[in-house]
Nucleic acid binder design. Structure first.
Lengths: 147, 147
DNA sequence: TTTTTAAGTTTACAGTTGTAAACTATAGAT
DNA sequence: ATCTATAGTTTACAACTGTAAACTTAAAAA
């Protein structure tokens, strides 16, 4: 089961997660109002999400009720973690500072993040090594120099 | 100029960013050792990145030197911001706490993040509203109930 | 009962991505 | 001068995405 949610599919999921459960009619009405999609586009995306196993429905032949098979939180944490792990570990902290500067956070969010950081700082290393190229391969720099 | 960097292309970029500049030979040697890619795969990805304008090279016909046209930081912040904005604003904070729990951060990273959070907390609202469905559309819930 | 509406299914089609073989041409080795 | 290795270019091909029209069928309206 491919658990990758594409950008467009993500929109469908947000509606379903927020409403808890939804009919295609609801999803179509909401998303066609917010985006310039046609109803067909939403239908296609719903079908793909079903095929991917990310949503399911009560067996009705019509006016089905769709629900998510994974929680919003799991999907979000998963996506974020994947993105962060795709990047240079040494640079992630700095990038986060810059990305979060522009991200709305509530007082509660901030408190929770502060608590996490306080805890992490107890065991955090002074520096994180770059993990973009394996150690020893710095020798690659010499390749050109020897010419 | 399409500035989207795919997952595979990201690997190429990390090598170039880390070395500052690199020949295809270096990129191929490093990535073929780290992944199970063939040299051709790396060549294709380099070509695509050139076409996208994300890297460029000195005009040499052979043994070109490739460099990035955007900094690693810009690319990272951009990617992170895009990802965060794709998600429910109300849930982002919570997802971050969970994603960061598993992300290595240095003491310095943590200090910088703490400074940012301290600053943000001065003006942060008590809560962030869900922005998954437009206000007023909660009426969608009623659709099914009226049947 | 006939018509209309809309939910779900099929088909479409181009662009992106992952992955790579084959081909071309040239710089360096012999 | 000839050969060889390899850097760069072309071609390939399936899966995934974005976007949507067309078709089918059943429920609701007239």
């Amino acid at each position: 089961m491919n658990t990758t949610i594409s950008t467009s599919e993500w929109q469908i999921m947000r509606v379903i997660w927020t409403l808890g459960e939804a009919t295609s009619n609801q999803i179509i009405r909401i998303l066609c109002a917010e985006t310039d999609w046609q109803p067909s586009t939403v239908k296609t995306l719903i079908t793909r999400l079903i095929k991917k196993g990310i949503i399911s429905h009560n067996g009705a032949a019509r006016d089905r009720i769709y629900t998510a098979t994974i929680t919003e939180k799991v999907a979000m944490v998963d996506t974020l973690s994947t993105t962060l792990h795709e990047m240079c570990a040494m640079c992630v902290g700095d990038a986060l500072v810059n990305a979060l500067a522009d991200t709305p956070l509530s007082q509660t969010d901030i408190s929770h993040l502060q608590a996490l950081l306080a805890k992490k700082s107890k065991t955090a290393p002074p520096t994180i090594a770059c993990n973009c190229i394996p150690k020893g391969w710095e020798a690659c720099h010499d390749d050109r120099e020897k010419k």
